[in-house]
Amino acid sequence: MSIFDIFAKLEKEKAERESAAGPVEWLVVGLGNPGSKYNGTRHNAGFRALEHYCAKTGQRIDKMKFKALVGEGSLGGARVLFIKPQTFMNLSGEAVRDAASFYKIAPDHIIVLSDDISLDVGRIRVRAKGSAGGQNGLKNIIYHLSSDQFPRVKIGVGAKPHPDYDLADWVLSRFTADEQEGIDHAVDRAMQAVEEIIRNGPASAAQLYNGKG
């Protein structure tokens, strides 16, 4: 990238920040469990995506509100509230409901990042709506919003190593050293997919990111 490309990129980002200085239009929710004992676990893939994004961009998600850590920022030319619910996975919907009610955000402007055991590590999948697919955080969000009409970006964490392996133990296990590069790649692409959803909708994001490594 030349110096001219860098300046053009900075000018574009500045213009987007200025255009997105109004009220919150979107919620971007990363799912996980709070506390250091859960850091790096498969179930915390949603948290990891937001943390990875913060490390790259300087975005801060550090204010306590709506039973969650939150931070306002801009993404895809829109004003966004980033949310990390602190209620533990099974009650994630409480934070999402409270934030959506406060900012008057419709379900189709709530994007949820979650782990998915049906996808290999390194893969992501965009869905415009649908059932929870057994993911308890999504299930609770659907319950509290009384709607499943919200887009979600599913981050692959790999299937159980064998059928008898306890599911809870699996999703609360940590990624192996060999999987670290794959999950970092996936969470980076997950946030790119979030941006594409905001800019051009879930269908465009699905076309760009589903089924591709």
Rank of each mutant, 00 (worst) to 15 (best):
G201S: 11
L208D: 13
D166S: 14
N44I: 03
K129C: 08
A132V: 07
Q59N: 10
L208F: 04
E179F: 07
I117A: 12
P163G: 05
S118A: 14
D166T: 10
F7L: 15
L75K: 06
V80S: 06
V112Q: 10
A177V: 13
D115E: 11
G46L: 10
L113W: 01
A159S: 15
L119H: 04
A45P: 06
M1S: 15
D62N: 12
T176Q: 13
G158W: 00
P161Y: 05
M191L: 01
L119A: 07
F102W: 08
G182F: 09
I197P: 04
I141W: 04
E196I: 08
S101Q: 14
K65N: 05
H185Y: 12
E51L: 12
L138M: 00
G30H: 06
K129M: 10
V194Q: 06
I198H: 08
A205M: 04
V194F: 01
T176L: 13
V153K: 07
V126D: 08
V153A: 03
Q149H: 13
G156W: 00
G211Y: 02
S173Y: 02
W26S: 11
Y53W: 12
L119N: 01
T41F: 09
G77E: 06
F66L: 09
E179Q: 09
P202N: 03
L138G: 06
H109S: 12
H52F: 15
S147A: 10
E11C: 05
I142A: 04
T57A: 04
G22W: 02
E18Y: 00
P34L: 03
A8V: 07
V187M: 03
M191T: 05
A49I: 04
E18H: 02
K129N: 12
I183W: 04
